[in-house]
Design a protein around this nucleic acid. Sequence first.
DNA 1: TATTTATTTGAATGTTTCTTCAATTAATAG
DNA 2: CTATTAATTGAAGAAACATTCAAATAAATA
Lengths: 132, 132
Amino acid sequence: MATESERIHRYLEDKLDECRVEDVETRLSELDMLQSTARSERVESDLAVLSTLGNETRYRLARVLADADGELCVCELNAVVDVSESAISHALSDLREAGLVNRRKNGRWRNYEATPVASAVIDALDEVHHDE
Amino acid sequence: MATESERIHRYLEDKLDECRVEDVETRLSELDMLQSTARSERVESDLAVLSTLGNETRYRLARVLADADGELCVCELNAVVDVSESAISHALSDLREAGLVNRRKNGRWRNYEATPVASAVIDALDEVHHDE
DNA sequence: TATTTATTTGAATGTTTCTTCAATTAATAG
DNA sequence: CTATTAATTGAAGAAACATTCAAATAAATA
């Protein structure tokens, strides 16, 4: 990456005026360390969590379950989201695979509840926006 | 939705054995209240945040910016993510649109920094997983 | 002023994703 | 045991997405 380090070299030179002296190698390794703090299993699971919640059907299901006081039956979730039963089932299955909900069998009913991961992400979004 | 309320009716009947008496109308309105606590502007912005972060390129950029001590130049971000410059630029533009990063112009360099929203979501994911 | 440089933009394209329909499974009721 | 019911599964098609290449913009330098 000759061209890339050259560009960073020029950038750091420019920055000298307003900042301290740095060495390109040092900077590159700093950046590499920053990047590698994200362990790859964590990246994978975070991406699953985020992309799974980033769909309206799944987001609404997760939010209702997180706000609900305990578990809800699929039949109740049907009343909450306006897509086919099949779509809800697919959505719940995706949420489960991402570790965002747990399922409990109860005869022919199935009850779902939000996991702490789902609650944590939703709470974080609520809190950071609470002043709006 | 005659069929839907019938199903909920049967579900609540089943639940009587292990729970208290409830009325279908009441339950449906409880569910509706649960669902409507999610104000629609908030849903939209949460979905933008989550789906934007749910892509590896954008997630890695956001995480590095959140972990970095202040802003980083695009030229530095190039060293951190392994896609074309164009892809990085598109990714940063998406992150900006979702309110996850801010941009500062500095001559021909562009510096980006994570917003509190980005930090909050990433922190939440880190915290909920800290025991793994 | 002409050239180089850093970044962005837009079009193109292959891939992924979301939803639905139809069929299936598993539990219960008749 | 047959039928009904609750939920799931898989296939299919349309829509949305992510990345790249090529071209454009804007700042700085020669």
